[in-house]
Amino acid sequence: MKILVAVKRVVDHNVRIRVRPDGTGVETTGVRMSMNPFCKHAVEAAVQLAEKGQASEVVIVSVGPKQSNDVILTALAMGAHRGILVETDAALETLTIAKLLAKVADEEQPDLILLGKQAVDDDSNHVGQMLAALTNRPQATFASEIVVKGSELEVTREVDYGRETIAVPLPAVVTADLRLNTPRNAALPMVMKARSKPLAVRPADTFGVDLTPRLTIEKISPPAERVPGKTVGSVADLASAIASEVNEMEAL
């Protein structure tokens, strides 16, 4: 089985972001960037399938600026075989990204496409589902377990009521949730080795996909700040504060 994993370079999830005062966006200059956490789980799942002998090749693809090479290298250091950067400095919408990935999937013909379920910058949670539609494949989103059963996958998904298991015939698209696995930290020799693995760079405007955004972003604003509260000294005080909230609710 051949696996294609799509990864995204985002503002590191530990960074407390700052909205630019002029409302044009979130400050990203001089901010630490890294691989989107969900993408790391997707890469780890692919590498584990390769280690179990269930996958023959793991190809990494990222759509983004030149610096996205860094996250591809991280994935190669984790054990993936080769990388493709679809290079663009433009901020692309999720549908455009899915269309570019569909072109790559057309060329690569992977049996399984793995992605993170969402990126922690725009929090969209779109691309896997869109890519499944564009490549006419079944999808298993929010995966917390993937079991290969012949030419099918049995995927357990995290859903609002708990978990559910579905069977998807290959070729398929699966998006990773956080409890799928524990991503490894690549050891230094693997990091060195990653630099010698093939990494193709292809300009995004050579795929025949219209990169123009459909939506207009009017403004980015910070959320309302909460007013600071008080500390109470005893359980009795806490209980009476709760009681007065509950009474107010009933008055509604």
Binding site: I17, V120, D123, T216, E218, K219, I220, P222, P223
Partner: peptide
């Protein structure tokens, strides 16, 4: 819609 785990709010116009 919220982005960045709700640390920013994005207002968009959808002309589609």
């Amino acid at each position: 819609r919220p982005i960045y785990a709700g640390n920013a709010l994005e207002t968009v116009t959808d002309p589609q």
